[in-house]
Simulated scan of single mutants.
Amino acid sequence: MTKDTIGLGCPQFKIAVYIANRPEIEPYSFLDSLISVSEGEITHIGTHCGNGWRKVFNVYAKLLYALDKRHFAEFQTAQTWQQYREQSLLQTNSKTALLFSPPQLGLDDDILHIICGRTYANELQRSAKINSQWVWLNEEFAVDKKNQLIVCPYFDYRQLSNIKIEFLTQLILSLRHRESE
């Protein structure tokens, strides 16, 4: 993490999700740094910013909760993904972040980067805000193994369904497994 990192989450994040938009209420709409959320804050954002933000947080929590517990036990701290979302996601010591700034690749090889949406990923690459050589696996998912980066559909139930979340968990596991070999 650098001083240019903007978003919500733990300063020592190990999984960073990058999204093109941000909640349109203060203080989030004017953030210029990374801040951890407190318990109940995700619900507050969802209530005031609409169903789209509830979906983003729900899909993020479902994704982390679906990861293989043998390799990602730190994200299995609650009995359900809903409890995990409310009690841990994006909070201090969660090791998770939702970032509104572009990925900063190469600073920490232990960070997994996930860009939400093909359009946003291509925009980042066209504007030279990211230097990555990802390979498209299909129309919706791309991987850059060297930089521990995945491009996936936007965090929305229709775009990133449960079946696609499962596919994404397998991609994450394959990157982490490769890293530990």
Rank of each mutant, 00 (worst) to 15 (best):
L149R: 05
I111Y: 06
K146P: 04
R126H: 11
A121Y: 01
L107S: 07
K146A: 13
D144Q: 09
E140Y: 09
L105T: 07
D110V: 10
G117Q: 09
A121L: 01
L137S: 07
L112M: 14
A121D: 00
V135P: 04
Q148W: 08
L107T: 10
N138I: 06
N147V: 11
W134K: 07
L112H: 03
Q133G: 14
S132N: 01
V135C: 13
D110G: 08
N147Y: 08
P103Y: 00
N138H: 14
R126G: 06
D108V: 04
K129Q: 15
K145M: 10
V135G: 10
E123S: 15
F100N: 09
C116E: 15
E140T: 02
L124E: 02
L137K: 13
I130M: 13
R126M: 12
L112G: 04
G106I: 01
P103S: 05
Q133Y: 03
T119K: 11
H113L: 08
Q133D: 06
A128F: 10
P103M: 07
E139S: 14
N131R: 10
K145S: 12
D144P: 04
Y120C: 11
D109I: 09
D144R: 05
I115M: 06
V143G: 02
L107V: 12
Y120F: 14
G117L: 03
L112W: 02
K145G: 05
I130C: 11
Q104W: 00
A128P: 00
A142D: 04
G106F: 05
D144T: 11
L149N: 08
N147K: 15
K146W: 06
A128G: 05
R118N: 09
S132E: 03
S127C: 06
Q104T: 03
I114V: 14
P102S: 12
D110I: 13
D110Y: 11
S132R: 04
L107R: 11
I115R: 00
I150Q: 05
P102C: 02
L99E: 10
D108I: 06
L99M: 12
N131Y: 05
F141W: 03
L112V: 10
N131G: 13
H113E: 10
I115E: 00
S127P: 02
A121R: 09
I111Q: 02
V143K: 04
C116Y: 07
